[in-house]
Design a protein around this nucleic acid. Structure first.
Lengths: 336, 336
DNA sequence: GATGTTTTTGCAAACGTTTGCAATTTATTT
DNA sequence: AAATAAATTGCAAACGTTTGCAAAAACATC
């Protein structure tokens, strides 16, 4: 039942020691006699004692919280339900927890524009993990400039004075494209907004693969939002307008690929016979789709670990660099 | 650049007033002269001032944080990447923000068993939103008993002394089943673990629909985990073992339905001609799947709003009741 | 101009930790 | 047993807000 919350002083009294001793005992400070430590800790457990983190944070000037900011371009805000993004958050959550930190889930709506002020000065978190560079990284830049410990999930090749962790998007785009070419496709379509940093890299890989294969001319870029709906519409329009003038698609995400796939199926274009497709991300659906979707797998688990490690290193005053995570092309039915 | 953080006292000095006046001015306390308030607020903006929330929380005994706990059965822990769950979290995030609260994303790993102690006594949050009842709700019960302000996403029909918000699962199961029967299916399969509260309700609806349609005998329950993989395997095994002895599937989630769909397609069972399927949740993929997947749509947006409202009401000392959110059957190609 | 009333401000305490330093207790040495 | 060293504990200050209460300032009334 509702009983008055125990404070450290109360616990100390129960244990017959001073507050300071109780504090040190709980923190397993070796300066306190082993026996006393155990005694206090036992009582703490018995009475379900927990420290007031507000007081603790105030005193220590440290929150043990990491804020994760979902940083999306305003008008695509909907795409927050791209399973991939959420997978990233979920993996970050795990990695953060494993390091003994808590995760404050946030977004530009709450944080406004001054992330350093809001999170760091406001003592809401010790550091920030930004998921997604967005198209303009002004907020990120100024937060970093103001000294906010900060790491970003995005395109590691982007020059920056904060560490960016992300996949080797160039290689991903290259491999996906090369794979399609090797399977015999020759008139390729790239689906995605090349203005976005990560996707731009994939597109660069796409182009270079074409060049290496001397197939440059027959390629086309369809700049669309990163949603399955946009892809569905785009492919539909294309088929209606120009007919089937391509035989391979490199999509900037699996959701986009799946949207395209649906449009093709509805118009009785056979995948992979008439058109081969490769997606990006390797979300769970890629395997479940029919035909199953070939995809460039991003190692979000490892990336999450790196992000957190780099952030904690920053908190310890170390300099950190951007880092690429290797990708892997997973070949399934849609491309062969 | 890195400058010493401004504290309220500094801001007060800059404004030429006392700390208390500055505090009241920032909180727009009408006892302070309008002109003074504006003056202080202007300076605050100019210097990017933000209050130290640690100090503020300590003083106010209030955090303005709501903790969201993803409460999954241990062995299915993987299913955290079910897009539906993450959609729920995302919607809760929005609703929480809209009320001016922040969202601490947590799980049993961090919180341990004593949620009241960890979150409430520990002053990490003012209240809890638990996503998923799990199969055993011991942690929830004791947290509530200890007086933690608490709401749960789950099956609202479950008797409890805390509010549960969730879909009308019974009606969902009933409607999905009735729809299949009306479309001519007669040998139905229910895919999902009926031991789980919400799914149990759906199964009850399933059975009652069969009864109402005098088709009870021909139904079968396949108890499987809530993952597409489990569904894929189960359907595959069933087809291999007994052949195609069913013509309709009610799945406990879309991911499950999609797993089943894949197994069927691979064995050249036509959907919806040979087998009709209805899923549950109406995730984005339902629409993109081919054939598109009929599904019982859960209104997570509204549910999230209700959850947060009920929680905040509790914080204001009001009693709250469980509440059902209406569902809607979305008919697509897979069932007709 | 003295008095009373209202508006506006400031003083100082409190929220519950943690920690430097001094004080005490215990162990070791002579 | 006294003197010294080492281990263990406690005192009190500090972290940065918010707020009850009293004081000061501004205004109104006679």
């Amino acid at each position: 039942m509702e009983q008055k919350k125990l404070k450290l002083a109360d616990l100390a009294k129960l244990a017959g020691v001073s507050t300071s001793t109780a504090s040190r005992a709980l923190n397993n400070n070796p300066v306190i006699k082993q026996q006393t430590r155990e005694h206090v800790q036992l009582l703490a457990k018995k009475y379900n004692f927990s420290l007031n983190t507000a007081a603790s944070r105030l005193r220590l000037q440290k929150t043990n919280v990491i804020a994760v900011i979902i940083n999306l371009d305003a008008h695509t805000e909907q795409s927050i339900d791209d399973p991939f993004l959420l997978k990233v958050v979920s993996d970050i959550n795990q990695a953060v927890n494993r390091r003994g930190y808590e995760l404050l889930l946030s977004n530009s709506y709450m944080a406004g524009d001054d992330w350093h002020g809001y999170f760091i000065d406001g003592r809401r978190a010790d550091g920030l993990i930004v998921v997604g560079q967005g198209k303009q990284q002004k907020n990120i830049d100024t937060a970093a400039k103001n000294g906010a410990p900060l790491v970003v999930w995005g395109d590691p090749k982007t020059p920056s004075n904060y560490p960016i962790v992300g996949s080797n998007n160039y290689v991903g785009g290259y491999q996906a494209t090369m794979h399609l070419l090797e399977q015999g496709a020759s008139k390729l379509l790239f689906l995605g907004d090349s203005g976005h940093a990560e996707i731009g890299e994939r597109y660069r890989g796409f182009n270079n693969a074409l060049e290496a294969h001397q197939a440059k001319g027959a390629a086309k870029l369809l700049k669309i939002d990163i949603t399955s709906q946009a892809a569905y519409t785009a492919i539909n329009n294309l088929l209606r307008g120009e007919g089937l003038n391509f035989d391979g698609i490199v999509a900037c995400s699996d959701m986009v690929a799946l949207g395209a796939l649906k449009a093709l199926k509805e118009r009785y274009v056979s995948v992979p016979n008439d058109v081969r497709i490769v997606g990006f991300d390797d979300i769970a659906m890629a395997d479940i789709s029919h035909p199953s979707l070939s995809s460039v797998k991003q190692n979000t688990r490892e990336a999450a670990k790196l992000l957190v490690d780099k952030l904690l290193n920053q908190l310890n005053g170390e300099e950190c660099m951007s880092q690429e995570v290797e990708i892997e092309l997973v070949c399934r039915q849609s491309s062969q």
